[in-house]
């Protein structure tokens, strides 16, 4: 006999995870697509495009990860509340 695997979270809704996956996918793939930015012009304050474009992806990635965090933590909270609502009466003997 084995104890049941008490879930820590309720079932996932796929929507938030798909959106997060797309956002994070953009943050991984776009900065690695070198042909899009390995050019000198246009320069920004004397800085070639190659350099300032990549630097500008740092805050963009930060924002994408931040939005992902917001979406996922909301869904996470919902899943935890769902499981607590169902199992807590049974856990209390």
């Amino acid at each position: 006999m084995s104890s049941p695997d008490v879930p820590t979270r309720g079932p996932a809704r796929s929507g938030p995870y798909i959106i997060t996956g797309i956002l994070l996918g953009i943050a991984i793939v776009v900065p690695l697509f070198v042909p899009a930015y390995s050019v000198d012009e246009p320069r920004l304050a004397g800085m070639p495009f190659f350099y300032w474009y990549q630097m500008s992806w740092i805050p963009i990635t930060s924002a994408l990860v931040g939005i992902s965090f917001w979406i996922v933590s909301r869904e996470d909270r919902r899943r935890r509340e769902a499981v607590r609502g169902v199992t807590s009466p049974e856990e209390e003997p």
């Binding site: 994070l24 996918g25 943050a27 991984i28 900065p31 690695l32 990549q54 630097m55 992806w57 740092i58 990635t61 930060s62 994408l64 990860v65 992902s68 965090f69």
Partner: peptide
Amino acid sequence: VPYTIVLYPIVF
């Protein structure tokens, strides 16, 4: 720079 950009989505 791209290394430490794509790092964070992966960590996430």
